[in-house]
Simulated scan of single mutants.
Amino acid sequence: MMDEEIVELYKQAGDIAKKCLANAAARVKPDASILDLVEVSEAEIIDMGGEIAFPLNISLNNNAAHDTASAGDTRCFSKGDVVKVDMGVHIDGYVADTAMTVDLGKNDLLVEASRSALNTAISMVKPGVTTGEIGAAVQKEIERRGYRPVSNLTGHGLGKYLLHGIPTIPNVGMSGGTVIEEGMSFAIEPFATTGSGQVTDGPRAEIFSQISNRNVRLPSAKKLLSEIKTRQSLPFARRWYSGKSEIALAQLYKQGIIRGYPVLHDIPGSLVSQAEHTVIVTEDGCIITTA
């Protein structure tokens, strides 16, 4: 059983995330600036009383996740793009994680595959169900439309200032898995692809998070670390600190104090769709905080 005050914080974060995601998605249009969209959308989270749980992810076409605008990014959306918009909001550390796909081409069935898989998965959530059973249902919904689920991306447990915890929610069937319990909070995020069904690291990394508390000697690195610590391990964007020394960021990375999240992509020419909601498990089902 989750404390009612905590449930309310999750709901507040979810309400902001739902509204801001819809607004961000409406800004995805051919020739629109990706950097402008990201900056406006992240500012809107703050204006609405939330905090940014992670940089707004804008991942195009065969890129599945972990892309965001860089400082001075000149990229714009193009006709035909399949755009994943993935947003995270927190209130006092309690996170709402939600995503949708905006299709600027003719890929309705691909978008439907991930969305329908998400809806089916949510309908199954209740105490006693295993994550393996949920994964099997996700896989079935995606494959019956002629696509592949991305097998090495998963949904994930959420906690206070915790973005990736237990349980892991697979996008493919597996035997066993974690048994769902009342009070769990997690994000379910099916990915459907026209490609291989496996994502790999790309060369770019614009998102980072702190993973250790080692001491640093370089004054600029020490100053940057003091700012990063306020994130309490939640991810941040390189562009948020673009006025700081790149040497400082590189030093923190070299010493293993921060880690990067490379853009994840399927094979060239493929297209990936995503849908995601955050849920809290109740006695006989779940609350969707982001719907």
Rank of each mutant, 00 (worst) to 15 (best):
5 E>F: 15
5 E>T: 15
8 E>N: 12
12 Q>M: 13
13 A>I: 08
15 D>E: 13
21 L>Y: 05
27 R>A: 14
27 R>L: 11
29 K>I: 10
35 L>F: 13
36 D>E: 15
37 L>T: 15
38 V>W: 02
45 I>V: 12
49 G>P: 01
49 G>T: 01
49 G>Y: 01
59 S>P: 06
60 L>P: 04
62 N>V: 01
68 T>M: 05
69 A>E: 00
71 A>I: 15
71 A>L: 12
80 G>M: 11
80 G>I: 15
81 D>P: 07
82 V>D: 05
84 K>N: 15
84 K>M: 14
88 G>P: 06
88 G>N: 11
89 V>W: 04
90 H>T: 10
92 D>K: 15
94 Y>E: 04
95 V>E: 04
96 A>K: 02
96 A>P: 06
97 D>S: 15
98 T>M: 02
100 M>S: 10
103 D>Y: 05
105 G>V: 08
105 G>S: 09
107 N>K: 07
110 L>W: 04
114 S>E: 00
115 R>G: 11
117 A>E: 00
118 L>S: 06
124 M>Y: 10
124 M>R: 12
125 V>A: 05
129 V>I: 10
129 V>T: 12
131 T>S: 15
134 I>D: 00
134 I>R: 08
137 A>M: 14
137 A>K: 10
146 G>R: 02
152 N>E: 07
154 T>Q: 10
161 Y>V: 03
163 L>N: 00
163 L>D: 03
164 H>D: 15
167 P>L: 10
172 V>C: 00
172 V>F: 10
175 S>I: 07
176 G>Q: 13
178 T>E: 08
180 I>F: 03
183 G>A: 06
185 S>G: 09
189 E>C: 12
192 A>C: 08
196 S>D: 12
201 D>A: 12
202 G>N: 02
204 R>M: 09
205 A>P: 08
209 S>F: 08
211 I>V: 15
212 S>N: 07
213 N>V: 05
217 R>S: 14
217 R>M: 08
220 S>P: 02
220 S>G: 07
226 S>H: 09
226 S>M: 11
228 I>V: 14
228 I>C: 01
232 Q>K: 14
233 S>L: 07
235 P>E: 03
238 R>D: 03
241 Y>N: 10
252 L>K: 05
253 Y>F: 15
258 I>C: 13
259 R>A: 04
263 V>G: 01
263 V>E: 07
267 I>M: 06
267 I>Y: 00
269 G>L: 05
272 V>P: 02
272 V>G: 06
274 Q>R: 12
278 T>D: 04
279 V>I: 12
280 I>Q: 03
281 V>E: 03
283 E>N: 12
287 I>M: 09
290 T>E: 05
291 A>F: 01
